[in-house]
């Protein structure tokens, strides 16, 4: 485990594109230290030869036919999925110029 200090919290938060306040940086650093200290327990388990379990049933995921389904349209005939976007223009998501 790496040393949990404010620099680590800042680095990981920036990877996740989260801006933290000064108070958050300090309380998160303390809490992350406690949580990671607890999680460290798993390092003592011998897992030699153990297959990782990623899905509870190890089932082969079924894929449906690659056929386009009916889109969800609103009363005006436009894709509904745009209605709840923060901003839209014509039939697309509108983003500020910096994007």
């Amino acid at each position: 485990m790496a040393k949990v200090d404010v620099q680590l919290t800042e680095k990981v938060a920036s990877l996740a594109r989260l801006a933290l306040s000064k108070e958050e940086k300090s309380s998160f650093t303390e809490q992350l230290g406690q949580i990671l200290g607890y999680i460290e327990k798993i390092s003592e388990v011998n897992v030699d030869g153990v297959e990782p379990m990623i899905n509870p049933h190890d089932q082969i995921l079924s894929l449906r036919e690659d056929v386009a389904a009916e889109p969800f349209l609103n009363e005006e005939g436009n894709p509904k999925i745009l209605d709840s976007a923060p901003d839209q223009l014509y039939d697309g998501f509108k983003v500020p110029q910096i994007l």
Partner: peptide, 15 residues
């Protein structure tokens, strides 16, 4: 490897 990969293996042992 130390976290996610290890945890997936311990998950198998729990099951």
């Amino acid at each position: 490897d130390a976290y996610y990969s290890k945890a997936c293996k311990v998950r198998r042992l729990i099951r």
